[in-house]
Design a protein around this nucleic acid. Structure first.
Lengths: 205, 205, 205, 205
DNA sequence: GATGAATGAGGGTTCATTCAT
DNA sequence: TATGAATGAACCCTCATTCAT
């Protein structure tokens, strides 16, 4: 067992390394600007070896996007939903910002793709829209129950999205403005507190 | 005089065309991913001609960034500041979002640069920080005057920034979720209303 | 006039050099086996320069095929047709073999493409078929007039084609069997005489 | 004994598969254009496995050529020679064309090599020349016996060679001109009849 | 000022072959 | 015997930039 498992494990580990390297490089330079040489360097392997494990740069890009969507989907569905807006939003905003600060490249790659006009995400939009509409329904329920003031439930989602993504996209700026070093990660808690407070108060009936 | 002026005017017009083309191309593909051929095409000139008017792709990129910063600086300083937080925020958020929706490429290019780690903006950070600190001071004044609840004045700026930039960065997604066509611009007013309301209510003492 | 003409002339000369180099390389190694480096070397220019003048290897290949077809078409139509089969065949076979021995690469490239299954010539077959049918009609006329014995007019064309192409394709072998040097061209006249005699006698009523 | 024999048999079968695959691939794409991957695919094995059984692509190419020469040599020597030119030529032309149409890849590979300048056949030419000279002697005998008209006995061999090879090389074109499907094999008999008639009549004293 | 020609460096990818097991 | 992993060389082609006129 150990031999087979070792081989499979090795391959998976390498693929994980490659995917991580790819996400970072694509996040920084976009699909066009990313080079397979740079991805290989980040993954610590040769360009030829990289190409042994991937079909093409484009396919690797698509897989990277796919893995991001899965990560976020899990993050959203792990959040309990039946305890009212305050509990839900506190939990979701906290998780989202913490993840953003730990893995800013994830949000960056996504934003990069969307800024290009999202040509690779066309197929994904419909299912994303469905999820948005389902969430909107829940927000409407909160409004009708008088738990929050009347809001546009789609724009609310955009706004929360904006607030939680921002700290990943602009981490460099945030670090500088908060007087942190180039590699230091800012303490997520004050940021979470501030964003949560803004949203919860902003929604009060 | 007219001859010289005509020449000078022509040159300036051409440079403006080039800069606009550059901002669009850089916004979509980043510094690395942008091609001078694509910029030339967008500007309606030949690649050789483009290179006659610019020193290098990098320099053109820097100029593009510079012009963005000027645009935003004007936008900020045109907003009257001495009528209290509500008037100021209503005005600023409105202007910012309107501009974002009309010229999404501006916000996109900036975010693109920041996501890369902002290597070209190192020189600009200090003066930006100064402006941020000055604005923070004003926010503190509002807090002390009891006009808004106590908030972290720097994070507040990030949050407003996040909310107003988002609609430029994610315009493609926004369009899709709102059921608009690929080229249609969404009506900015409902968005402005929703964002303004969230911020103003979120800041109530 | 001289300046413009010189420029245009230079370009045309270079293109002719490139086309010739391409035909030779493609004739020897086929589309897949040919390398743009080898074509550039044969043309006496750098690979980069070659790629400045061509769109792609495939397109250059197509142009090479196209130019061959034109050459042969001219060769066929230059032959007078209204003086009966003997005069026509003597003239055509002579021209064809002379050309074959002088430019064996032309016949070779064509055969190379046909041997692959002729994927690039699909578009050309129909018009070729038309020409074949028209020629077949003429042969039928000869038969009816009692000038030649009854033959399948299409297979006759194939056979003449086979006999005149062969000396281009197998020039290396022919040279060796005739005891010639590696670069020497065999005297075409005895070959022409022998082939012509075989065909004319083979067609006698 | 059976075990050893089975193993040996298996190996030989596999080698035959490989050789056939190689001939087809080399016939279509030449030595340079052929890929070991494509040969492996045609043989139904993995590229690694292929390389386990062959020393190199070049060596496999040489073996392929060698096996072709053996095939043709057998084909020639199986033809009875002591019944005069007509019987001999009828038999040989028939066999040759039938084989050409059944195994066009054989003739194609050979022609491909010759068109390249036959660098791999240098060693083979002398023995081939010897055979040609022997056959020429026999033709001269026929001429002296008044069985056929005076002809150049070497060129006659080239011409017969040309006529019988052509239908293999240009099968694609032949199929199209005769209105056959892409995979259909034309009926060899009318072709044999026409070629035989042309040659026999063309040689009449 | 303007433009076609040219180029060295690098882009992504494939290839025949070897390694390691 | 057999196979997944690995690799250096080469492939076609594009790029930002410079040259020459």
């Amino acid at each position: 067992m150990s031999a087979r498992s070792d081989l499979a494990t090795r391959r998976e580990e390498l693929m994980a390394q490659i995917r991580q390297a790819a996400i970072e490089e694509f996040a920084e330079n976009g699909l066009r600007g990313a080079s397979t040489q740079a991805i290989a360097d980040r993954a610590g392997i040769s360009k030829t070896k990289l190409h042994y494990y991937i079909a093409s740069k484009e396919e690797l890009y698509e897989q990277s996007l796919q893995s991001i969507i899965e990560i976020w989907s899990e993050l959203f569905h792990e959040t309990a939903t039946d305890e009212g807006p305050e509990a839900f939003l506190r939990s979701y905003i906290g998780r989202k910002i913490r993840h953003s600060l730990e893995h800013p490249e994830v949000a960056r790659l996504f934003t990069n793709e969307v800024m290009r006009g999202a040509p690779m995400l066309r197929d994904y939009w419909p299912s994303s829209r469905e999820a948005t509409m389902k969430a909107a329904e829940r927000v409407r329920g909160w409004v009708e129950a008088g738990l929050i003031r009347p809001v546009d439930p789609v724009l609310l989602q955009f706004n929360i999205w904006a607030l939680t993504q921002h700290y990943a996209l602009h981490l460099t700026e945030v670090r500088f403005m908060l007087g942190l070093g180039d590699e230091a990660s800012p303490d997520p808690e004050p940021i979470i507190a501030e964003v949560t407070e803004l949203v919860l108060r902003g929604l009060r009936p």
